[in-house]
């Protein structure tokens, strides 16, 4: 197991290294104005030159890359240029991440707590009213664009219950609607997949044998079916959780939550190269860590996945 994790980590570091280098190189191809900020118009050509040299942008590319990695190892992602001039990128991210993380994890938590049991119940009562109700809900959430029901919730529910429209850190009641809105879609998807995997498992021969050997339906569900049905979901769960950090652009702007959601778009529009670079770094690391954790989670729950010597038997 340790050997497997170690190997996967090493592979991921290499992948990350390649991604960062590519992003870094791509940004060097962008117009240099991005580093000058609002002052660009007032600067003379010579001033610009001095400024860029001071930033280290006139050094050979390899030296720049080396410096970038050296800073990175110290947790320094550079300073914002235009977004919040001269504030370290790390600080900007740290401010915003907490909001996105709170809402994201909250939504995932709620949707797991509701979606998974809902899926299980639907599978057990396949074809009966609960299953139909659940299917109706899933179809609704999948078919109606999120923007529509987000807006409807914000407009009408706030009206009916006399809730404030916008997010306020100090009023927990205002956290409720963004959380619920964000949880709707993942709840539907967990319920859908859980139902589907449960139904799949319930039709398998080993369930029939277990039933024939006199195992009670209830024991059968919990001791035999549940774990087997959850395996396919285990792989994606870590990545889903990690990606909550990136925030939801739509919800955050609807409720004016100062989260990560719109940051990348803003930074690109304002040509803030260092923030873009920092964000890409964060997002790609998340993706990679999510994949590793997913694989580890799979390996933990499924004994058929052989670890170590590169052999994998399915």
């Amino acid at each position: 197991m340790l050997w497997y994790v170690g190997k996967r980590l090493l592979q991921s570091i290499v992948t990350l290294f390649i991604i960062i280098t590519i992003v870094f190189s791509l940004l060097r191809l962008m117009p240099e104005e991005g580093y000058l900020g609002a002052a660009a118009e007032k600067m003379s050509a010579a001033q610009k030159e001095v400024y860029l040299t001071n930033l280290g942008l006139r050094d050979p590319l390899l030296v720049q890359l080396g410096n970038f990695y050296a800073d990175l190892l110290q947790g320094d992602l550079g300073k914002s240029v235009t977004y919040r001039t001269d504030v370290p990128v790390v600080t900007i991210l740290a401010d915003k991440i907490m909001y996105s993380l709170f809402f994201g994890l909250g939504a995932v938590g709620i949707s797991l707590l509701i979606g998974v049991p809902l899926g299980i119940l639907m599978a057990q009562m396949k074809g009966r009213w609960l299953d139909r109700l659940g299917t109706g809900y899933i179809v609704f959430v999948v078919a109606v664009p999120a923007a529509v029901y987000y807006l409807v919730i914000q407009m009408y529910i706030t009206d009916i219950f006399h809730l404030p429209m916008l997010f306020d850190e100090y009023k927990p009641i205002t956290w409720l609607l963004p959380l619920t809105s964000m949880a709707l879609a993942p709840t539907a998807s967990y319920a859908m997949w859980m139902r589907r995997y449960m139904v799949d498992e319930l039709n398998k021969d080993y369930i029939k044998l277990a039933r024939a050997k006199g195992v009670k339906e209830r024991t059968l569900m919990f001791s035999h079916v549940l774990r087997n049905a959850f395996i396919p979901m285990a792989q994606y769960l870590p990545a889903t959780i990690l990606f909550t950090i990136t925030g939801s652009i739509y919800i955050e702007s609807l409720y004016s939550i100062p989260g990560m959601g719109g940051l990348l778009v803003d930074a690109i529009q304002r040509q803030d190269n260092t923030i873009v670079q920092g964000l890409v770094l964060v997002f790609s690391s998340l993706g990679i860590i999510g994949l590793i954790l997913g694989d580890i989670a799979m390996a933990l729950v499924d004994p058929r996945i052989k670890l170590g010597k590169g052999e994998s038997v399915r």
Binding site: D205, Y206, A212, K213, R227, N228, P303, R304
Partner: peptide, 14 residues
């Protein structure tokens, strides 16, 4: 008790 047809699928893999 029963002995089922296909031993490959009759046991819980986990």
């Amino acid at each position: 008790a029963i002995v089922t047809q296909d031993p490959m699928t009759s046991l819980n893999p986990l």
